[in-house]
Design a protein around this nucleic acid. Structure first.
Length: 552
RNA sequence: GCCCUCGUAGCUCAGCGGAUAGAGCAGAAGACUUCUAAUCUUUUGGCCGCAGGUUCGAUUCCUGCCGAGGGCGCCA
């Protein structure tokens, strides 16, 4: 019996009890809040329904809980329902009913845990969105790991997701980039506020090799050519870095495409300014064109077109936002670093100006910055670490896991000693090891003649088995919650718990009989539980973009 | 000055308004003739930054203060 079925049974029980009291109370499954109790003595599942609804029943929580508990106890599959604390109902399932879940998991396979809570939602998820003027660094790395995991979690919850990388390939910084390449190629120092470093020298060398006549061209043609050649090379490197990091983007959206004129000679930016003007949110002042974002909660109005006729960065933001809406994304999620939190108000304001609801159409997740080994990393401090170096240093799995393991808004300090350790200090190895162990156990079982022909769930009566089964049953709820709260770290915490419970079960229950002892039905049945656990761990790791090795 | 995020065990951090606030590590004591000891068992350790408020109930929500980080351009 899986927890969702139990929850809906409890809904029925509660409504029936309400009727018997001549009360018309509608109970939602969400009200049941069926969860794994913290203490070991509190049964397999607990609900706080009596605490929530006591008022509606004009009763006190304990009294209501007592009435409901006796009704719940008579449900098929329920062994026991006790009232505890202020009015919790602790439910223990009978082994057979609980164990049925194991077969359900094995049968569902890779889709076990997936749900439909977000079915019908079409979401655009933007993250990383770095300038193509240099390699990705540790800051981008956190959003890459987190954003990609979030995309996977949202999909598992039934949403249709397009993950998107906005390439900031327009504007003055690109020209500075091009100029930096020319300077490096000709042995001159980088321009003021320009780009420098070994990678610029590298790019310059490659650009020169591909374009031998570059420096013979007229001055005004050199920079654009160098700029675009280096841009193509750098973007390719960024894509490769992310691919090696197991991060996939559905769409690479070029800012330039917003500036380029269309068939009517107007760019998407021209069009969006016109649209905002038509909607009455644009005014002219001091020779510039402004958007009245203060109407939508921004702290100041924003210039969209400068006095010199050039569009601001905000103009591209606006056009990009409208592009997302036009492409059918009602919901737009942005993952931004703490250093970009100033965007929140203006992006919300853009939603308002576009006639949308800033509270539901835009979601902005602000992430705290990462430090490593206690050292704050910043451009200013000059100790930026590149994604490629981090990946080679720590490995994709350890890096992705440890970045996805914490909520985005939690400040994070990585410890390279722990991440390179192969012990259970290192959570990713703890989980991967548990997964590898499920495969080792299955291999040994097969060799010993334990098969999957027999499945008698009522034999899974050990305390550690009840606990493991209940943990596995929690997976759909965890995915649903992680998706709704946009918190992929919950997946990591959950599979760590599953790994722990599995190791404890392994310690006390054997799948392969010891020595020459005969193979009994319980061994066959346990093999199913072992496989189900492996499946859950594999699915969970997959949601985080981390591999699930079968042997370690 | 204004705005955003954070403050929980020695450390790194969990904890969608509910039970005695949890996990891993570190510290202490144990378990390998037995399917992977990369594991497991037991144990020590907390004014949940401070002060108010809302609530039957606050680590969680609200306000103020203190502390840490970040941001406030007709830059991108």
């Amino acid at each position: 019996m899986d927890p969702r079925a139990l929850a809906s049974d409890i809904v029925e029980v509660t409504e029936r009890y309400a009727q018997s009291q001549s009360l018309a109370i509608v109970v939602e499954t969400a009200d049941i809040a069926l969860e794994r109790p913290k203490g070991k003595d509190h049964g397999d599942w607990a609900t706080s329904i009596a605490l929530k609804l006591a008022k509606d029943f004009s009763s006190n929580p304990r009294e209501l809980a007592t009435a409901l508990a006796s009704a719940i106890e008579s449900l098929p599959g329920v062994a026991k329902a006790d009232v505890a604390g202020p009015g919790f109902i602790n439910i223990t399932l009978d082994a057979g009913a609980a164990g049925e879940l194991v077969a359900t998991i094995v049968k569902a396979g890779d889709t076990y845990g997936h749900g439909k809570d977000l079915a019908g939602e079409t979401i655009n998820l933007e993250f990383v969105s770095a300038n193509p003027t240099g390699p990705l660094h540790i800051g981008h790395t956190r959003w890459a790991a987190l954003g990609d995991a979030l995309a996977r979690v949202l999909r598992a919850a039934g949403a249709e997701i397009v993950s998107e990388f906005y390439i900031n390939d327009a504007g003055a910084q690109m020209d500075v980039f091009g100029e930096s390449i020319i300077r490096a190629a000709t042995g001159q120092p980088a321009p003021e506020n320009g780009y420098h470093g070994a990678y610029i020298q590298d790019l310059a060398t490659r650009v020169m090799a591909d374009n031998p006549g570059l420096l013979e061209l007229p001055q005004e043609e050199q920079i654009p050519l160098a700029r675009d050649a280096a841009y193509a090379l750098q973007l390719a490197e960024i894509k490769e870095s992310l691919a090696k990091f197991n991060v996939v983007f559905d769409v690479w959206f070029s800012e330039r495409s917003l500036h380029n004129p269309g068939l009517d000679g107007k760019s998407l930016i021209d069009a969006s300014v016109a649209r905002l003007r038509q909607a009455g949110h644009v005014y002219d002042e001091d020779g510039a064109i402004w958007v009245r974002t203060t109407d939508f909660g921004d702290d100041k109005d924003r210039v969209i077109k400068r006095g010199n006729g050039a569009y601001t960065y905000f103009a591209a933001d606006a056009a990009y936002y409208l592009s997302k809406s036009d492409r059918g994304f009602a919901r737009k999620i942005y993952l931004l670093g703490a250093d970009h939190h100033g965007y929140i108000h203006r992006l919300k304001a853009l939603a308002g100006a576009a006639g949308e609801d800033p509270d539901t159409n835009v979601e902005i997740l602000i992430g705290q910055l990462v430090s490593i080994n206690g050292a704050k990393l910043s451009k200013r401090a000059g100790n930026i670490i590149e994604l490629d170096d981090l990946r080679e240093w720590l490995g994709t799995d350890a890096l992705r896991y440890s970045l996805a393991r914490y909520p985005a808004d939690s400040p994070l300090t990585l410890d390279s000693d722990i991440l390179t350790k192969h012990t259970n200090d290192n959570p990713v190895f703890y989980v991967q090891y548990a997964h590898a162990r499920t495969h080792q156990v299955a291999r040994n079982a097969q060799a010993a003649g334990v098969t999957r022909d027999v499945f008698e769930p009522e034999l899974l009566g050990h305390e550690s088995e009840a606990s493991l089964i209940a943990s596995l049953g929690d997976f759909p709820r965890v995915i649903s919650q992680a998706a709704q709260l946009r918190e992929p770290h919950r997946i990591a915490r959950y599979i760590e718990e599953v790994a722990g419970v599995y190791h404890r079960w392994y310690d006390s229950c054997r799948v392969t009989p010891q020595g020459d002892a005969p193979v009994e039905p319980v061994h066959h049945t346990r093999l199913w539980l072992n496989d189900a656990t492996g499946q859950v761990l594999r699915n969970g790791l997959g949601l985080l973009g981390v591999s699930a090795p079968e042997r370690m």
